[in-house]
Simulated assay, not measured.
Amino acid sequence: MDHRASRPPNRTTLPPRLRKLIGTCLIILLVIVWALGAMALAQGRVTTLSAFWQFVAYVVLGIGWVVPAALLIRWMQKGDSKPETL
């Protein structure tokens, strides 16, 4: 018989307000670091590529930050008792 199923998990979770504060700070840091990295790449290596690959690089550099930001937002919303609506 498995006794783990009857016990609640023994891990502590962050309060929602603290998780959202940390997530917000991390998103701001992500955007700043991503923008600086994208500018550095765009000024250096991307300029030596052909026009097609420049287009692809600029698209990736422009919207690539969305995936990590979405993962952070999902983590920030984890554990909320009710979803927030407008």
Rank of each mutant, 00 (worst) to 15 (best):
D2T: 05
D2F: 04
D2Y: 01
D2P: 13
D2L: 01
H3G: 03
R4G: 00
R4Y: 08
R4T: 11
R4I: 02
R4Q: 09
R4M: 05
R4P: 03
R4A: 10
R4E: 10
R4F: 08
A5E: 13
A5K: 12
R7L: 14
R7K: 14
R7G: 01
P8C: 03
P8R: 13
P8M: 09
P8F: 07
P8S: 07
P9N: 07
P9Q: 10
P9R: 13
P9T: 07
P9W: 04
P9H: 10
N10G: 06
N10L: 14
R11D: 08
R11L: 14
R11P: 00
T12M: 11
T13I: 07
T13V: 13
T13R: 14
T13Y: 11
L14V: 04
L14M: 12
L14Y: 04
L14I: 06
L14K: 05
L14E: 07
P15T: 13
P15N: 14
P15A: 15
P16T: 07
P16M: 05
P16C: 08
R17D: 12
R17M: 11
R17Y: 05
R17S: 15
L18Y: 00
L18R: 12
L18F: 08
L18P: 02
L18Q: 11
L18N: 03
R19W: 04
R19H: 06
K20V: 04
L21Q: 09
L21R: 12
I22C: 04
I22S: 00
I22W: 01
I22P: 00
G23E: 02
G23T: 04
G23P: 03
G23N: 03
G23Q: 02
G23H: 02
T24C: 08
T24D: 00
L26T: 07
L26V: 11
L26A: 15
I27V: 14
I27S: 03
I28L: 15
I28G: 05
I28R: 00
I28P: 01
L29M: 07
L29H: 02
L29D: 00
L29S: 08
L30S: 02
L30D: 03
L30Q: 05
V31S: 05
V31P: 00
V31A: 12
V31R: 02
V31D: 01
